[in-house]
Design a protein around this nucleic acid. Sequence first.
DNA 1: TGCATCCAACTTGCATACAAGCCGTGCACT
DNA 2: AGTGCACGGCTTGTATGCAAGTTGGATGCA
Lengths: 227, 227
Amino acid sequence: MSPAPPTGEHELLPRGRSAAQLAYDYVKARLLDGRFAGGTLLSENEIAQRLDVSRTPVRQAFVQLEAEGLLELYPRRGALVVPISPSEAEDVFEARMLIEQHAARRAATGGGGALASLAAALRDHIADQEDALAEGGAGFAWSDRAFHRAIVEAGGNRLLTRQYDGLRDRHQRIAAVTIARDPSRIERFVAEHREIAAAFKAGDEELAASLLGAHLQGAHELSRRPR
Amino acid sequence: MSPAPPTGEHELLPRGRSAAQLAYDYVKARLLDGRFAGGTLLSENEIAQRLDVSRTPVRQAFVQLEAEGLLELYPRRGALVVPISPSEAEDVFEARMLIEQHAARRAATGGGGALASLAAALRDHIADQEDALAEGGAGFAWSDRAFHRAIVEAGGNRLLTRQYDGLRDRHQRIAAVTIARDPSRIERFVAEHREIAAAFKAGDEELAASLLGAHLQGAHELSRRPR
DNA sequence: TGCATCCAACTTGCATACAAGCCGTGCACT
DNA sequence: AGTGCACGGCTTGTATGCAAGTTGGATGCA
């Protein structure tokens, strides 16, 4: 990067990232954690003023987020935060199940110790999760995402991996409303992760896929249960 | 989402669509049919001048197309037409197989004559394809897309349907280089479509999924074969 | 009260201006 | 010849101004 002339003025806005990236990150973070609730109408001006940038980069961010299916741009009206449809949790679950199980089976065809290196990566993620658990479960969601993503990535299909990322974004948006960080639940998830990783390590990808299915199913049913 | 099928070479710039939409359609059409080849560096100015609009809407279109994975924006350098990677055809095929077969099986769970109405829709598409065949195969690609999309849509998962659309865009981009409109091939495809539709109509979604798998496999292998 | 209408305050859509980064070219100097 | 460097022409990034569409409420009228 360039030497970043020490403006010193607005250190609140980390220059170095583009204004467009700033706006994208700002809005997306709020979309995913629910601070921008479904049904809300966002205005370019509002965001632009809050970030002290012009409408142009904000507009770019909006367009990008629309393409990701998180926003809907209504001409001359505003940007609607796409409401979470009733079936959305089901759809996300179904798609995750489809892609993750497929990837789990597919990872075995990579040959050359692909399963072993996947298992190693998973073990690292599990270690993170144990740390998160010890600290009250704060960072678990992120590490959970990394764990599952590693499996999908091991499937070796870039397109599916990309689609999976979008799926996890949506999942996160839903979970922001639903999930309580219950340590006992997290503990169970981590235990299931261990079993899955062990199955991969043992080279039994079919067992891994099966365990993964049960794991996803369980998490999904938990999230459906009223609290 | 998908661009309009065939556009004439020098279409009059129809005001009524927004300039941004115009730019999007213009660029996307060329990305999909290969006129903008992979590896090319597009400039906002060039497109803007050709369309007689400013850079602003063109930029929007670029951002959107980047989100779809067709373009990569390099800061202060330009917009790179994403090259078709060697594995891309495999990845698209694998993802299509996964989603379409899943949807085929899933369509049966819709209940209430879901399979029957799907079969009816498919029959209409097949009729279009017979027409296309009679006219030399020109419009087949689009009708083929509609046929398969109907199956995916019948799966009832909006997220997967959305992802499938993106998949077909990529497929089209690849096929633009590969496919020759060989009437005998098309005839075979249409015949397979008939079998698939018949299986749905008979309520045998498992057979349909199986036929669909063979159909996709066959098309994929044909496209791999050097001509 | 009920209803049509107008208006003011929003919104986005787009064009344009300008700043700033990247790159190849050609010149000067060693 | 080879090396460094400045410069000009390209590119994008962003701010801003203005036009135009939408909306909701105040207002006038029956």
